[in-house]
Design a protein around this nucleic acid. Structure first.
Lengths: 218, 218
DNA sequence: TAGATTGTTAATCGATTAACAATC
DNA sequence: TAGATTGTTAATCGATTAACAATC
């Protein structure tokens, strides 16, 4: 989707990392942290951390640093983790089931309302207490239940059709695990998780690594 | 891992996309393609595409463009997709099973040799014809069988321990799906797939989207 | 040959880092 | 107050885009 915000995606994609590291600090009962200490933990420069945080406000205090609890809460709010979203999972294969069973998902405010599949054997079953519906009814279910986010865990061949049904049903966002791009209206957020691309990146880096090691040997 | 190559990660992460789009073109029996046409398909600028490809060689021909089959093969080779890697999957939960059952994975040259889990009920079973072993034996199995890549599909609490066993066993790379960083020697490639970060990014973008829509309304 | 399109250099843009005044 | 550390501006770096000569 087209973005209007001045916050760059580079910054946005670092926010979840800050959130995660702050959760760790909180768990370890750390009360305050400086950008320098955060730099050591995260691997980002202290300068970048201060720059990033100041996109959203002055959360620190000169001479002191940042209050861990406070900063954690601020970033939670920036990320919208205080909100609750209704989701549907399309595709009840291993990956779809993994997501339904992933408790972290629901804990973060993404509440599965239904699973959809084409397989008549699965339709009617419950997975982690969520009912499997016929994918034929996807669009109407999304519409009738005010679903916010659709999660595509189907094979590549089905993903565009599913994306269109989700879009027509009125979702705000799509989390796409199918190894293909989907085309939907511009005002719908699409986040792709292309595992094959991640895998190919490893493949490239392994090959490069071998070449480097070979060169070093001689 | 520290990298020595002059190719930037920005370029590396676009290679799998080029590969995927070229696969599509091949499937549609397209024989030649210009950087302009590729730009239309991929959304990258034609200039960037030519720039990227020329990091690896002059694959095109002035006045003609690129031969689809040839370019596809060249990129396959650059990505190391002609190689075969032995892999193990650690964690036989839904996600681990999803990967074992993901045929694309094996087709790309990543051949699962074993699955590991702590659960005694699973140990000894076969999933997609791959045997589940006791995670106690992970390090020795990796060593004895010359495993190249370890795939971590365990909960967060186990991932560092597993990463260390993989490293000691001698893997070249780790594909980490646990929502936490792992610390291993510098010469091991680590590729993280942090689904929670992807999820939080959606959460942020949805919130931003709502704010934009609200502003536009008035 | 003329037209098309690459390969490559130069210009621009954006993101990261450095520096330091403000201030707790 | 003195020391520490932020918030913010300016400088640097790297990545993207534009331009065009080379050439098929």
């Amino acid at each position: 989707m087209e973005r209007f915000s001045s916050i760059s995606m580079a910054v946005v994609r670092r926010l979840p990392k800050y959130h995660r590291y702050l959760s760790e600090l909180k768990k370890n009962d750390v009360k305050r942290v400086s950008s320098q200490e955060l730099s050591r933990i995260t691997g980002f420069t202290a300068s970048q951390i201060r720059q990033d945080l100041n996109c959203f406000g002055g959360f620190g205090q000169q001479g002191y640093g940042y209050n861990v609890d406070d900063l954690h809460q601020q970033i939670s709010k920036i990320l919208g983790l205080d909100k609750v979203y209704k989701t549907v999972i399309v595709g009840a294969g291993n990956l779809g089931q993994a997501i339904v069973n992933y408790t972290f998902f629901e804990k973060s405010g993404f509440v599965p309302q239904a699973i959809f599949d084409v397989n008549p054997r699965l339709i009617g079953l419950k997975i982690n207490d969520i009912k499997v519906h016929d994918v034929e009814n996807l669009e109407s279910f999304v519409k009738d239940n005010g679903i916010d986010i659709g999660i595509i865990c189907t094979p590549k061949s089905q993903c565009q059709k599913v994306a269109e049904a989700l879009a027509k049903g009125g979702v705000q966002g799509i989390w796409n695990f199918a190894p293909s791009d989907v085309s939907v209206p511009d005002d719908i957020i699409v986040e792709n998780v292309h595992l094959s691309e991640s895998l190919f990146t490893i493949s490239y880096l392994l090959k490069e690594r071998e070449e480097v090691l070979k060169t070093k040997k001689y």
